[in-house]
């Protein structure tokens, strides 16, 4: 089993990226001086406390935002705007509610001018491979959250993108469904070997799925650490109890905790992490009042 990424396209290179925006006249850096790479065929996660600019990073690569400083390259060429060469899966359900599952999957091909017959058969093939063919004529509102995200992934794959950008795709799912979706995704990746840039705040998820994990600091987001994940491929759920996995999770947790505390510093205030400065031990609130 060779774990080396296949030589090919799908290399994301971010160099000295800063994203700045103005709010009430003052300028704020969302992301500051970030450099990172996603090699062809590599699964890279970016984690950090909320508001650290990790989604900003993805929006830059997707082409929704422009860098204020620095360069963002896909296979050496600067990113000019959104395009079907980068498949994006969003945290919010983003299937078009007025299209059936199949029409949703066909959409990217339709935009490329593929004929109706060809795109229907392509969409049916893809849905079949993902085990979703039985639902081709369902509307998105008839599907559960996990199903919607699976269709979302298939839709993003339909245009044969070189990279997948995933912005907390399982963030809205309950934890049981999320675990199953992670397994489906890692198996899918094993078959497809696409470059993936995966945004999450779930540490176990990042470790389970990734080849490498970047940890970001609290705002302004910088790269705090780059952690390689030496777990073997293909990944299986039983690895989540292996010592390597647990050690990685512990390491990442302490890195993130520092940043979360930094990010929340102001709001924690005088009480700090104590929560409540008096033990009531069953006396009830009356004792204080």
């Amino acid at each position: 089993m060779s774990d080396a990424p296949k030589a090919g396209r799908g290399h994301i290179a971010i160099r000295d990226l800063t994203v700045r925006y103005t709010q009430h006249g003052s300028s704020i850096d969302a992301v500051s001086n970030v450099s990172l790479d996603v090699q062809p065929g590599e699964f890279v996660s970016i984690i950090g406390p909320s508001g650290c600019g990790k989604s900003t990073l993805l929006n830059i690569v997707a082409g929704f935002l422009k860098p204020s400083d620095g360069k963002v390259l896909l296979d050496g060429a600067p990113i000019k705007g959104p395009g079907a060469d980068r498949g994006v899966v969003f945290q919010q359900y983003s299937l078009f509610p007025w299209m059936s599952v199949r029409k949703n999957v066909e959409f990217g091909l339709k935009m490329q001018g593929v004929s109706a017959n060809a795109r229907t058969s392509a969409a049916r093939t893809l849905l079949g491979l993902a085990g979703l063919l039985a639902f081709e004529n369902h509307y998105p509102d008839q599907l559960s959250g996990g199903m919607k995200q699976r269709v979302g992934i298939v839709r993003a794959l339909a245009t044969s993108p070189q990279v997948m950008l995933m912005d907390e795709p399982f963030g809205a799912l309950d934890s049981q469904t999320r675990v199953v979706m992670q397994e489906i995704l890692t198996n899918m990746w094993q078959q497809l070997r696409l470059s993936v840039m995966f945004i999450t705040h779930d540490i176990e998820e990042a470790v389970f799925l990734s080849d490498r994990v970047y940890v970001m600091t609290a705002r302004p987001g910088r790269i705090k650490a780059e952690i390689p994940i030496p777990l073997p491929r293909p990944r299986t759920p039983d690895m989540t109890s292996s010592p390597t996995f647990l050690a990685l999770v512990r390491q990442l947790k302490s890195l993130i905790r520092e940043e979360s505390l930094a990010a929340m510093g102001g709001e924690l205030g005088a009480r700090g992490l104590e929560g409540f400065d008096r033990s009531l031990a069953g006396e009830g609130m009356q004792a204080v009042l």
Binding site: Q142, G146, T236
Partner: peptide, 24 residues
């Protein structure tokens, strides 16, 4: 009747990973 088929078999994309025999 909203379909909840997250747990259905997922076709080709669920490969049988190595080491499945070991009890967890």
């Amino acid at each position: 009747r909203v379909v909840d088929e997250d747990r259905e078999a997922t076709g080709l994309f669920v490969a049988a990973p190595a080491g499945r025999e070991h009890p967890q």
